[in-house]
C-alpha cells in the first residue's frame, strides 16, 4: 500500500514532534499566557512566553489537538526560543506564506517547522498548523 499522498503531510519529523513534543508544559515564574482555540474543530493551545529585552527567553505550551496543531506548536516554540520578538514575528509571517504554498525567499531558518510545508496541499488543515503561530503573535502584540 502506498501512502504517497499522506506522506506529503505526515512527515517523520512531524510525527516525532507530535509523539515527543518539545517545550510542553508551563513556565514557572513570570510569563505572558495566551489561550487560543480553533472553534470549528476544538483544537486548543495555551502558550506561555517569557520575553526579556525583546528576546524570547522561553516558550512553552499545553494543549489538545491533532498531530498537525500539536507538532506545529512544538516546532514553533523550538524555532522562536532565543530569537528576538521581531524575528519571531517575521518567522510567523513566513510560516503563513508557506501555508499558502508560496516560495519562501528568506535567510530566516525556521528549523523543523519547515517540514510542515506539505500542509499547503491540505487547505482544510492550514488552520491546525497556524494555531500556535497565531497564539504567539497575539502574545507578543498584546504585551
Amino acid at each position: 500500500m502506498s501512502f504517497n499522498n499522506l506522506e506529503t503531510l505526515y512527515r517523520q519529523v512531524i510525527m516525532d514532534h507530535y509523539k515527543n513534543p518539545r517545550n510542553r508544559g508551563a513556565i514557572e515564574g513570570d510569563a505572558l499566557t495566551v489561550d487560543m482555540n480553533n472553534p470549528t474543530c476544538g483544537d486548543r493551545i495555551q502558550l506561555q512566553l517569557q520575553v526579556e529585552d525583546g528576546i524570547v527567553k522561553d516558550a512553552k505550551f499545553e494543549g489538545e489537538g491533532c498531530s498537525i496543531s500539536m507538532s506545529s506548536a512544538s516546532m514553533m516554540t523550538q524555532a522562536i526560543k532565543g530569537k528576538s520578538v521581531t524575528d519571531a514575528l517575521k518567522m510567523s509571517k513566513l510560516f503563513s506564506e508557506m501555508m499558502l504554498g508560496e516560495e519562501i525567499d528568506s535567510d530566516m531558518e525556521m528549523g523543523d517547522a519547515e517540514a510542515l510545508s506539505g500542509v499547503s496541499q491540505f487547505p482544510a488543515r492550514i488552520k491546525c498548523a497556524t494555531l500556535a503561530w497565531k497564539a504567539m503573535e497575539k502574545g507578543v502584540n498584546d504585551k
Partner: peptide
Amino acid sequence: VHPHDVATALDSFGIAVRAGHHCAQPLM
C-alpha cells in the same frame, strides 16, 4: 489517532467524513 488525522487519511482514500465537535461541545 486524532479524528482530524483520521478524516484527512480517509479523505486521501476518497472517503468524506466529518471530524470535530459536531456543534455539540457539552456532549463532547
